[in-house]
């Protein structure tokens, strides 16, 4: 489960432009902005896909379409043969800034993931299990504002995993984290993926994150965005682009493709 097909997806937004005061017609239909242009992609079951691209290129828009938070202008997103028509616990979104509900404790937040489990005992066991998995034992009764940035991210991950979704969607999961938390959570996501083999989509702008984590790297770019590269990676973990020449070459290629250079 967790096969994703993105078929000829386009997404446009219409800007409603407000003209100067005194204008007869304050709301004019602004021009339509096309964000995504005929995107075709296929992700296999259990794949870890890293979406790379400059900021504002439409990576997050594509994720929101897959999550069902937003509707496509044309084309369709199909998960396991079913067209995505809205949000569902089957594809859980992990938000760029915290998506934890701040008025609920870690426990209550994680419990949202197992809402459909009828039996109280099973539910409690599952919540505990997922909290333990992300190493937040003893923080069950803490509120999000009492946690560090990394702990918040892990709590949200626990909530997403508790729902046992087929697809996990992460929008810049390392945004705003300090260096060490970044490293740690990256490792945890990879370990968890090795263990659970859920189709995982990660949006990032960090080339190294994509190289170290991804089973597949998709580079987007241009306006409107198109797929610049779609490459499967067959390197075993743990990976290190400094030691693996092929990985290092790919890294150079990605830097070139994104129009930046590592050496300054």
């Amino acid at each position: 489960m967790g096969h994703i097909l993105i078929r000829d997806v386009c997404k446009s937004y219409r800007n409603r432009r407000i003209t100067r005061r005194g204008s007869r017609d304050p709301y004019q239909p602004g021009e339509t902005m096309r964000i995504l242009d005929h995107i075709n992609l296929e992700f296999c079951e259990g794949e870890m896909v890293c979406l790379l691209g400059p900021s504002g290129c439409g990576k997050s828009t594509l994720l929101r379409l897959i999550a069902g938070f937003d509707m496509t202008t044309a084309g369709e997103v199909v998960i396991d043969g079913r067209k995505v028509v809205g949000p569902s616990p089957n594809h859980i979104f992990v938000f760029q800034h915290s998506g934890l509900l701040p008025w609920m404790t870690v426990w209550q937040n994680v419990e949202l993931g197992v809402r459909n489990v009828e039996d109280l005992r099973t539910r409690q066991e599952k919540v505990q299990e997922n909290i333990d998995m992300v190493d937040l034992t003893d923080f069950e009764q803490h509120y999000p504002h009492q946690l560090s940035g990394g702990m918040k991210r892990r709590a949200e991950l626990a909530r997403a995993l508790a729902a046992n979704p087929d697809v996990l969607i992460m929008d810049e999961p390392f945004n705003g984290l300090d260096f060490l938390s970044h490293m740690r959570i990256r490792e945890e996501i990879v370990n968890m993926h090795e263990l659970l083999r859920k189709t995982t989509l990660v949006v990032t702008h960090d080339i190294d994150d994509a190289l170290l984590m991804g089973d597949r790297i998709v580079v987007m770019g241009g306006r409107p965005a198109q797929i610049k590269l779609n490459r499967q990676l067959d390197f075993p973990h743990p990976r290190d682009p400094k030691k693996n020449a092929a990985l290092g070459d790919l890294r150079d290629e990605l830097f070139l493709m994104l129009g930046v250079s590592y050496a300054v």
Partner: peptide, 9 residues
């Protein structure tokens, strides 16, 4: 918060 609510039905 509303997207979270929708995601968890």
């Amino acid at each position: 918060f509303f997207q979270v609510a929708a995601n968890f039905k």
